[in-house]
């Protein structure tokens, strides 16, 4: 099994090389700004001088979407082995997986009914 990961490891090195290459060539070419000014290096805000700090406060809405995502993500870790063994499972075992999914669907419906999935 580990032999297969030799390839993955080398591909990772190649990918890293590619990334560093694209990143490094302009750096090696020394394409630095010849004239620098504070106007040039200001954060771009459509022509206005930036005002205040960039880390503005966010709505908790984003956090709720991430929560729902997290729950479904963990569900996937359970369901992938289940789907993999699907052919070997008896009917009731498939039903168990279905109940697992239905419980999560219930959670989704609850969140939905509470109005947490609305974009405010």
């Amino acid at each position: 099994m580990l032999e297969q990961f030799t390839f993955v490891g080398f591909l990772f090195l190649v990918a890293l090389f590619l990334g560093l290459f694209m990143f490094g060539v302009p750096w090696l070419l020394r394409l630095r700004p010849r004239k620098s000014s504070s106007y040039k290096s200001d954060p771009y805000e459509c022509g206005l001088r930036p005002h205040g700090e960039a880390w503005v406060q966010f709505k908790a809405q984003y956090y709720i979407f991430a929560l729902v995502f997290l729950v479904f993500d963990v569900e996937a870790v359970f369901l992938f082995p289940w789907a993999l063994a699907y052919h070997h499972l008896a009917f009731y075992a498939v039903l168990e997986g279905v109940i697992f999914i239905l419980l999560l669907t219930a959670a989704l419906i609850y969140v939905w009914r509470k109005g947490a999935l609305e974009w405010m």
């Binding site: 289940w82 789907a83 063994a85 499972l89 075992a93």
Partner: peptide, 30 residues
């Protein structure tokens, strides 16, 4: 991995914890 999949839904082994994990996730979300 297949043994894991079978064990997870085997009522004699992890079938119950499997469902409980789902309930746990639902509770955490709510």
């Amino acid at each position: 991995l297949r043994t894991l999949g079978e064990a997870l839904v085997d009522p004699g082994r992890y079938g119950f914890p499997f469902e409980v994990a789902s309930v746990l996730l639902v509770m955490a979300l709510i």
